[in-house]
């Protein structure tokens, strides 16, 4: 007998996290765009000192974490919609998680390799 079991008792958390990260990212991007609009970056030292600022660096890193979290929920939603073989879906989800963890380490490395300005 093929019985469909549902009722995983989660889902709200991810749905809410997707929206919270979206709002945080939007605020960050608008602030960044406003900054660049007021004073465009002319050269390398200016660009480097912008991200070398400790607060900016932390904000940018948090933005990227929010981006990766948001991306995880979105991509998993797509996999849940279209990929129906459980094994393949799990494999793809693991692939997405591993790539996002890799990106997290990479972004930390990029931002903190700068040294302090």
């Amino acid at each position: 007998m093929k019985r469909i079991v549902t009722g995983a008792h989660y889902g709200l958390r991810d749905w809410l996290a997707q929206r919270v990260t979206a709002v945080i990212m939007t605020i960050f991007v608008l602030c960044l765009a406003g900054t660049l609009l007021v004073s465009p970056l002319p050269d390398y030292p200016a660009w480097k000192s912008l991200l070398g600022n400790q607060w900016m660096r932390i904000a940018f890193f948090l933005f990227l974490i929010g981006l990766f979290w948001h991306a995880w929920i979105g991509i998993r939603n797509i996999l849940m919609d279209y990929v129906h073989a459980t094994g393949i879906r799990l494999a793809l989800q693991i692939g997405v998680i591993v790539s996002l963890l890799f990106y997290t380490v990479w972004s930390a490395e990029i931002l903190w390799a700068l040294g302090s300005a």
């Binding site: 390398y44 660009w47 981006l67 991306a71 979105g74 991509i75 797509i78 990106y103 990029i110 390799a113």
Partner: peptide
């Protein structure tokens, strides 16, 4: 949805690659 997938790939790796390149050295910039 489609734009989200494209931002995930190749968007995120390209963003990080560009970030790394522009911050590494004046020559890379």
């Amino acid at each position: 949805r489609i734009s989200g997938v494209l931002l995930f790939f190749p968007g995120i790796p390209l963003l990080l690659y560009g970030l790394e390149m522009t911050l590494r050295s004046p020559e890379d910039y």
